[in-house]
Computed example of a mutant assay.
Amino acid sequence: MEALFKRFESMKVLSGSTLKLIALFTMMCDHVGSILLSRSELGMTPFLSIGSHGLTLYAVSRMIGRIAFPIYCFLITEGFIHTHDRKRYGISLLIFALISEIPWNLEHSGHLTHPTQNVFFTLFLGYLGICAVEKYKEDTQRLLLSLLALFGISLVLRCDYGCRGFALIVLIYVLRDKKVLQAILGSCMVSSAYAAIIAFIPINLYNGERGFIKGKALKYAFYVAYPLHIFIIYLIRLNTFGYN
């Protein structure tokens, strides 16, 4: 058993920076698929037939894209654990949620308003949920009330991934020392369970190291990549397909 444990530990080769790149790449695949490929003949024409089903670039991009969110949820919990300033960390999430809202609205509707909110709001609410778990871990009643309030806010705001996204972040944090249970329950909480299962593979290969993304410049460049790429996708959609 000890030899098996050591072998598993030796397989943990992915740094936090590598996880961030995986999450960013798969998220971009998802957005390209949902906004661009879904509207193109190339994206919707099957290139491979499996029985009576045809596989399209759109379907592949969405399958890849569903891997991103569980990894982002995990990164939020790691950020909370390792940050030197939890208040500043939360403020950064909120600021980028606000910054990302206009690109998000433009990408999805072509207008400055849209009924749903971008994923940074989900991550921010999840961060507040973790704060509540830490602050009220000795007070069950206040903890439940706080989590229910945040759960309700995620419903009202209609954040990306909704209340399940908020709950997944809290669950990953609470079960951070129970990896098998974390993966099983976490996979059941998202709409694409198969993708979540795949996502928990790199999560469990995480070695606890920060990696090459260090310092404020690279840290915020990773944050900026979210609103920047969805604004670029908006411009491509506007000039290629329009918003009719």
Rank of each mutant, 00 (worst) to 15 (best):
M1H: 13
M1S: 14
A3M: 12
M11L: 15
M11T: 12
V13M: 11
L14Q: 08
G16M: 11
T18I: 11
L21V: 15
A23R: 01
F25C: 13
T26R: 03
M27Y: 09
D30F: 05
D30E: 14
D30W: 01
H31V: 06
S34V: 07
L42F: 15
G43A: 10
L48S: 10
S49F: 14
G51D: 05
S52G: 15
T56I: 08
T56F: 08
Y58M: 02
S61E: 01
R62G: 00
R62I: 07
I64V: 14
G65R: 00
I67N: 01
F69I: 08
P70R: 01
I71L: 09
F74K: 02
F74V: 05
L75F: 07
I76S: 03
I76A: 07
T77E: 04
E78D: 13
G79A: 07
R88C: 04
L93K: 01
L94M: 12
S100G: 13
E101Y: 06
P103H: 02
P103A: 06
L106K: 01
S109Q: 07
G110E: 07
T113H: 07
N118G: 09
F120L: 13
F121W: 15
Y127F: 15
G129T: 09
I130A: 10
C131S: 13
E134F: 09
Y136V: 09
E138R: 13
E138D: 14
D139C: 08
D139E: 14
Q141F: 12
Q141R: 14
R142F: 04
L145A: 13
L148R: 04
G152C: 10
S154Y: 05
L155S: 13
L155P: 00
V156I: 15
L157Q: 08
L157Y: 06
D160N: 12
F166M: 09
L168Q: 05
V170F: 08
Y173A: 07
L175M: 15
D177I: 00
L181A: 09
G186Q: 05
S192K: 04
A193Q: 12
Y194A: 14
I197W: 06
I197M: 14
A199T: 03
F200R: 00
F200E: 03
N204K: 02
G208V: 06
F212Y: 13
Y220Q: 09
A221L: 14
Y223I: 05
I230D: 05
F231S: 02
Y234E: 09
Y234N: 05
L235I: 12
F241P: 00
